[in-house]
Design a protein around this nucleic acid. Structure first.
Lengths: 117, 117
DNA sequence: GGTTCAAATAGATGGCTGTCGATCTGGAAC
DNA sequence: GTTCCAGATCGACAGCCATCTATTTGAACC
């Protein structure tokens, strides 16, 4: 977790050839790394990744009752995965009467996508 | 895990308006989702994400002894994270004498990157 | 051989995660 | 009000994960 970036401590290297003199720094700082890792972690499950895929393909909102039968999982488990995605800021939800609809939050994946490119 | 795609079971809907008649399918199939989720999961830790960032910026190989002091973590912990990245196929390693060098495997992130775009 | 050093592995531990069945919530319709 | 249904939440449990210290491996040098 803790990433200590202030001048990487010199590994004392008395004699012999140094293994690698120029110390290297991450261009991506701690906070950005934590933001992107949070997104990546939420996508790090095949079910959640497919959920996001479905929601992205259907630019509008998709009813939970449509999502559940796509997987060989119980309704509470799918609900749990949707909650994880919502906590990561990837999707949003909206109740309409008896049903709940989920949708992808635009730009939620943009930072990670840009870094990967 | 198991994603059952053969004709999503009709949720019986006797009377009243249907919540959502056209059932929706993921365009990303199970195997692709599992491949990409595996990559995303490996990137789902800030330390690993920064490690990949450093390795990507330095197109050549980077010595482990340079990576360890970048983080406020023990050497075995950094070694563990590198092992996770290697198991995911994101990085490769190479020993040279006393030291070990890591490098990013080209195209390892490409599928996920393409899907995110 | 013996010493030294870089890196990997082993083992332990506390915390998180994916899954389930059971229950709760709250809107719709009667 | 009562009933019914969609969805969320709860509680439990097994498995995984990030981290540490201690140890092992293996290459280099004396």
């Amino acid at each position: 977790m803790a990433v200590d970036l202030e001048l990487a401590p010199k590994t004392k290297r008395p004699a012999g050839e140094p293994c690698c003199e120029p110390v290297v720094y991450p261009d991506v700082e701690r906070e950005q790394a934590e933001r992107m890792a949070k997104i990546a972690k939420a996508l790090g499950d095949p079910v959640r990744l497919q959920l996001v895929d479905v929601l992205r393909k259907h630019a509008g909102k998709v009813c939970v009752c449509e999502l559940v039968p796509l997987f060989d999982l119980s309704q509470p488990t799918v609900s749990h995965h949707l909650k994880v995605l919502r906590a990561a800021g990837i999707v949003g939800s909206e109740r309409q009467g008896l049903w709940a609809y989920y949708y992808v939050i635009p730009d939620a994946l943009e930072e990670l996508s840009a870094w990967l490119s």
